[in-house]
Design a protein around this nucleic acid. Sequence first.
DNA 1: GCATGTTCTGCATGTTTATGCAAGAAATAG
DNA 2: CTATTTCTTGCATAAACATGCAGAACATGC
Lengths: 252, 252
Amino acid sequence: MLTEERHQFIRDRLAAEGKVLAGELASRFGVSEDTVRRDLRELAKAGQLRRVYGGAVPSAPFAAATISQRSGHAVEEKMRLAKVAVGVLASGQTLFIDGGTTNEAIARAIPRDVELTVATNSIAVASALAGLPLVELIVLGGRYVRDLGTCVGGDTLAAVAQLGADLFFLGSCGLDASRGVTAFDSAEAEVKRAMARNSAGIVIAATTDKLATAAPYRVAAPDAIRHLVVEKTAPSTILADFERLGAEIHFA
Amino acid sequence: MLTEERHQFIRDRLAAEGKVLAGELASRFGVSEDTVRRDLRELAKAGQLRRVYGGAVPSAPFAAATISQRSGHAVEEKMRLAKVAVGVLASGQTLFIDGGTTNEAIARAIPRDVELTVATNSIAVASALAGLPLVELIVLGGRYVRDLGTCVGGDTLAAVAQLGADLFFLGSCGLDASRGVTAFDSAEAEVKRAMARNSAGIVIAATTDKLATAAPYRVAAPDAIRHLVVEKTAPSTILADFERLGAEIHFA
DNA sequence: GCATGTTCTGCATGTTTATGCAAGAAATAG
DNA sequence: CTATTTCTTGCATAAACATGCAGAACATGC
């Protein structure tokens, strides 16, 4: 286990969960707590985290905003969903990846040896993909919306219009077998629609609470979903509806 | 086994797995660890990887930051520069912020109570600003260049062309009183030029080692610099040149 | 063929770095 | 306030590292 690996793990973990515990890290790495503390000290010196009694928390307010939205349970679930979701990927494909914490988890779960072209309007997804050498990354700029963590607006739409993708990882939406995919915000919905239009297939990874919910703005028809990644706890009646409409169901 | 074969294998392995171990490579190649270390040294010198204790990891955009931060000195210097640099800001202004670790430090040093409109092509800067509620953030998308940590290309240029800013925080460049501001990459220089053209003033925060260096591509004339933030160790002769050309010098 | 110079490699050396342990200081919880 | 946990510091050890040197492999020129 390289020192650098531990540092990387700590960074990732902080971004994902908003905190790390010294003891927990020590047992996970198989090193003494002293070593972990040294790691934390170095990362703190580099400004990459802030040490607290018992462990460390992110230094940037960025991750702090996302922490509140995440309970410890949801993180594990999302990581499981993400691992399964990347299973639909194939090397050489072009992707749109939308915003949302689940999509961020998916981006982080993409293996290093897969060659992809990815266009995203999410800063968090872009950050995650910035570390993958084989991923050609296209950032879809525009007006950044803090609540969504993504860029929207005319510039974003124009950038999307120039691209075509094999798959579109659509996130943070309502999902309903009759109304299809829906979004809470008009501008957000516009961008998602553009991505959906320019993609050959839509992939949605959704925690159970997202199922059978609807929001005001329509993004895609229910039969546009090609892959649906869900937890085992998802109600089978809803899944049956989507399956009838042509979606392939993947259980995480 | 040719040296080049080993190098290629190391590159591939690094891309696929994100790390290599010196001992492991030695036994796989059937050579001594010394030879492997020599290989790693050469590849590191060529910028194709970053050596760490025990092996090597890919050279990432943050790797440069991490490695300079590791020394401890540079990061503190940059933070000092950043604190002074944000002093030229005024609430209500519109900014372009370029890439580079110094600009990232500046972005992180912006106080929470300043209202700004900021356009940036750097993912790291965007991440930093995502946490500031009073900052209207515009992400300049495009093709992401891993080595720079920024977006470049036609899309980026088009997005810049639509905007005008009061100040342009220009980063990661050569700086010379006769040749002006210069960049190492053609596409990078193009974006910087566009930002410079659409800004009322240029701000450069540079560590001493950046002064009196030049790169191939011209970005801006030496008299285009309005604010120059430097360390106290900066040679006064160079500063005098820039001051004569109209720059205001700020010491950190 | 032979000599020469270059490059690559492995070994021995001394140095640096990472790690764990122990003891005392500091922070937190009851 | 006291007990417990967590943290820092100094130190010892083993691993990883840089360096200098010598031999082997190789190409080049005579």
